[in-house]
Nucleic acid binder design. Sequence first.
DNA 1: ACAACCTGATTGAGGTTTCAACTATTCCGG
DNA 2: CCGGAATAGTTGAAACCTCAATCAGGTTGT
Lengths: 162, 162
Amino acid sequence: MSTTRWLDESEQRVWRAYLESTQRLFDRLERELDDYSDLPLPEYEILVRLSEAPGSELRMSEIAAMLVHSRSRLTHTVTRMEARGLVTRRACPSDRRGVLCAITDVGQAALVEASPVHVTGVREHVFDQLDDEEVAVLGRVMTKLGAHLREAPTPAVRRAAS
Amino acid sequence: MSTTRWLDESEQRVWRAYLESTQRLFDRLERELDDYSDLPLPEYEILVRLSEAPGSELRMSEIAAMLVHSRSRLTHTVTRMEARGLVTRRACPSDRRGVLCAITDVGQAALVEASPVHVTGVREHVFDQLDDEEVAVLGRVMTKLGAHLREAPTPAVRRAAS
DNA sequence: ACAACCTGATTGAGGTTTCAACTATTCCGG
DNA sequence: CCGGAATAGTTGAAACCTCAATCAGGTTGT
């Protein structure tokens, strides 16, 4: 019912800066990563999570949840990765619906090669550009947004315009 | 030559919060938009820019630059949009290489229907979650990152790991 | 005025992601 | 302990994006 609360000019500047910079940033990181290594960013992120996991393996749905990917997307990506020998899959013993995905030695090697490229990019393009206060507030902001989005899942009905 | 400057734990938390929240945010906005209107987010953004432009039309490459899309991507998207009657294209009189893209009445109508949905989402999921200082710093942060990325275009060579 | 180069835009092929449908397993209420 | 609902994962087709190649038109230097 209530009328739309539009963005004022300054809010609009903030929002568009967010859109544009984020777009540029991910573009850049993606390009750097597969120019100087041969791992697309999404595969890189999967390998990072696996390498940090106890036993170097995770359930498919855990990975999907961490990276905020759909299960379907993850299956497709992991299928490609398995074909390249970066990961393996095996049935989960405790839950027979589940699948455990593990990083292989080849995957580890690819990760070791790629991570300096990626981390250097993140440092140069993000942290080197900001002072400590800005980093702190950025962290707080993103943490808040994440918490909100996690707990307020898709509303069943949204009263749009009218 | 220099050894990689890794992220410390707190930097990593900030970086991952940025990744996760941004992913969730765009996911959500996209879903809301094409649940409650029938315009994908990229098409919505194109229509917004066109509607703000003098004469309601822009060069293809201007749109691409504003939205940080490749020219090719834009061509494909606009081709779909033109097929649906949302925009039209015509040759640019001053530069015969160019193409001018204009929003149609149908496009305007779609935009008017979609914008309350989108703007409400942005307000709820972003601005309502933050106080004034946080919004101000977020703006400054994103402006800085954008400026850096715009002026430091893909380095010809990057010394990676080793 | 010409060659070499750059810019604007499109095309089609190939790769990735989404979407809906489907199977299998587990969880839960009665 | 049964039946319905939720969860885990996969599949294939369609939608979308990327990449490299191509074409046409402008720009520059000599």
